[in-house]
Nucleic acid binder design. Structure first.
Lengths: 147, 147
DNA sequence: GAAAAAGTGGGCAAAAGTGGGAAATATGAT
DNA sequence: ATCATATTTCCCACTTTTGCCCACTTTTTC
């Protein structure tokens, strides 16, 4: 099973429903294909993890110590916005109000495949994000991917 | 069975009843779904454990040494506020005065899923708690979850 | 170019959440 | 002990939201 990649711009309807691109749905294991865990992402977008991937993350959270103050703080912040969403018969995901507002999405959503998860952006916000990054793509590549 | 996650802000009525969000009820094993053990939580909120989860904790407590002063002290403080509460037909939990006052909850309760348990907060108090934390979320994430 | 799949939109029934009344149980004071 | 006050418990009724289903358009595929 390969990672998520590619992008699409789809409309989001009055009920907050957006289609998950068929090519991305195809990247998931068949049994996990119906359920996502949706949450706030970094940089004002929405992350959606397929259920099996989410379980890996949950396992890491379970490793934290509930009697440790910092661990508690992180757990609360991390889980706060997360919720399970089952795709409807047409392969759409229902994003809830608070998340849509957080991401500033209106009519259309830019959907990005990002390896282990899918991201939903307001198209304009994503442009601004790219523009705001200090380093250009090539510099970034060298820094992050090493020499 | 996955852990509790997500949040909701529900009203708490004059009788101290708050609905347990359906999405959280769905996370519990069917037989444990009706009974919670409710107690004081860390940082001035209320914790509610599903009965089966509570039994695990009890097992840990039983592992403590009753001849050790510290263990005794912890056991007493830990068990002091705990009580079993059965949900009503509509899936609501009745929180008792002392706990509500401890958490400083008035009209509305912020309900937080936090992996193994559910938390009830006064919304404003929770904001203050977040604001009071030294590290911002991103820093916290890097610290707690490692590189 | 027809058939299938993908994407879009809306209606309706069921469930979730909210509120309150009346009976049953406790608590506390006289 | 008894009465008054306060909870608790078990109902029922109402409103809002959600989940499920169907129909239509557009794009892909053979």
């Amino acid at each position: 099973m390969s990672g998520f990649k590619g992008q699409a711009t789809y409309s989001i309807d009055a009920k907050g429903r957006v289609a998950v691109p068929a090519k991305m749905r195809a990247c998931m294991s068949t049994d996990a294909r119906e359920t996502f865990v949706v949450t706030r992402g970094f940089e004002e977008c929405i992350y959606a993890y397929p259920l099996d991937r989410w379980r890996d993350i949950e396992r890491e959270i379970e490793g934290l110590n509930p009697y440790n103050r910092q661990d508690r703080a992180f757990t609360r912040r991390f889980l706060r916005w997360a919720e399970e969403v089952v795709l409807d018969k047409k392969g759409r995901i229902a994003l809830h109000r608070p998340l849509i507002e957080y991401a500033g999405i209106n009519q259309n959503a830019l959907i990005l495949g990002s390896q282990r998860h899918i991201e939903f952006w307001d198209p304009q916000k994503f442009d601004e994000y790219l523009a705001a990054e200090e380093a250009d793509y090539e510099t970034l590549a060298t820094q992050v991917m090493g020499g």
